[in-house]
Simulated scan of single mutants.
Amino acid sequence: MIPMADMAVLFASRGLQTTIITTPTNASCFSKSIQKTINYHHQIALHIIPGSGNPDLGVSDEFLSTFYEAISELQEPVEQFIQESHPNCIVADMFYPWTTEVATKFNIPRIVFNGTGFFPQCVVEAVGRYDLAKNVSSDSELFTVPNLPHEIKLSRKQLPHLEAETFKGYKNI
């Protein structure tokens, strides 16, 4: 959330009307960012929609299932806000793939924010595309990630424990 909030501050510092849409649980995380814009012509607005979420929870299969379910439940209130406010653009975290449909529905551009960066995305894409983790005999055996500028070796135990289905629908965001 911090990089996304920092981006909102950058937008506001350039004179752009910026609104962060968040849930009550996460609203307090953005208060420092909003305070940074106190002297700007356009301050960051905070729009709170119904929903829950606790970023301090550990990652487990049960948590991920609940997490993705909670994310999908935010689509309707976000659509309602967009319909009422008519933004010029949506900047959405990569975990909100349905914002592509929302942007198309309201004919506005959408930018995907990926806080992990481009290099990890290249590694994830290569590991998934070539199914590298299945081609080793143990969790500690190293495999080389292809098509990168330098040799990167990983083992299965270094990969996050996420099922392929977890990312279904997030690949083409």
Rank of each mutant, 00 (worst) to 15 (best):
P87K: 03
I71R: 07
E69Y: 14
Q83H: 15
D93H: 04
N88C: 11
E73L: 12
I71Q: 09
P77F: 06
E76D: 10
E84F: 12
Q80P: 06
V78H: 02
F95Q: 05
D93C: 06
E73P: 02
M94L: 14
F81L: 07
H86G: 04
A70K: 11
A70L: 10
P87M: 05
N88V: 04
L74V: 07
E69K: 14
V78A: 05
Y96I: 14
V91S: 03
A92P: 08
C89D: 01
Q75L: 00
L74N: 00
F67R: 06
Y96H: 10
E84K: 15
Q75G: 01
D93T: 03
V78F: 05
I90A: 02
E79N: 07
E79Y: 01
F95R: 03
I82M: 01
I82V: 15
F67I: 08
S85R: 06
I90M: 05
Q75K: 07
C89W: 05
I90G: 00
I82F: 02
V78W: 02
I82N: 00
I90V: 09
C89Q: 06
V91A: 08
F95N: 06
I71C: 10
Q83R: 15
I71V: 15
P87G: 03
F95Y: 14
L74K: 04
I90W: 03
N88A: 12
F95G: 04
Y68R: 14
L74A: 07
E79R: 04
E84N: 15
V78L: 04
E69G: 09
A70I: 06
Q83P: 07
F81Q: 02
A70C: 08
S72R: 11
E84L: 10
I82R: 00
A70P: 00
F81W: 13
I82H: 00
Y96T: 11
